[in-house]
Amino acid sequence: MPMQSLEIDKKEMEMRSTQLDKARQLVTHIEAGDEDLANGLIEELGRMHDSILFQEIGKLTRDLHEALNVFRMDSRLSEIAQVEIPDAKERLNYVVVMTEQAAHRTLNAVEESLPIAEVLSRRSHELADAWQRFRTRDMSLDEFREFSQQLGEFLQQGAGDAELIRANLSEVLMAQDFQDLTGQVIRRVITLVQDVENNLVGLVRLSGERLSTPDQKKSKEQQDSQPHQKLSSGSGPSVPGTADASQEVCGQDDVDDLLSSLGF
């Protein structure tokens, strides 16, 4: 850009010094009473003025063209700013909510299981001690009756407790599905961040070069089609409050209904 304006300034300077020369000649010719030559110079000066005007118009046209190009690039950026950034924020919020839920689900299961495991461990130790005394015949008949009853209760309780712990561990297992679901959402946001980066780089390059080359136009078209990726390649979980809301989303019951309507 500075190169071009320098060139234009240089041309203008040359033009002005030629004009000044001609004007001086004109004065000389008029003073000498040489009307024909004077008239010729007046005409020439008029033509020069026109050509300066055309150059100015040319410069304005170029600026306008450049401004329009920047604006075209801007419209993709403004789409990103107005639609896709808020959309991405919603998606990242979904990630926060999902990870929080998963953490609570896990912590709840752990908090419920730990006391059960502690009681199980303490009772096992107590009964093991008593069992040892029974084995070494160091136990009265009354004590043995009590021990036998406690042992029966412990075994019954133990089966139930173990089942509770198993169920809670399953809960912990299932809670880990958040990593897949939020991972897909985060990957999608990363793609958007890359898109923003490419557009910003394009904008900087454009204002550097003034005019976009055909190559850049092509890459811009490619970028435009990117966010609207085909559903066939998969788009991750549907997030409420985002562009996903415009599409019909199914829960497991809807899927079952849909598949059975298709003969499954």
Binding site: L231, G234, G236, E248, V249, C250, V255, L259
Partner: peptide
């Protein structure tokens, strides 16, 4: 996690057994 109606229809057409 793909839950759009047309995706489920597409998978059914391609021959998925369940979804």
């Amino acid at each position: 996690a793909e839950a759009k109606r047309e995706q489920i229809v597409e998978a059914a057409q391609v021959g998925v057994n369940s979804y």
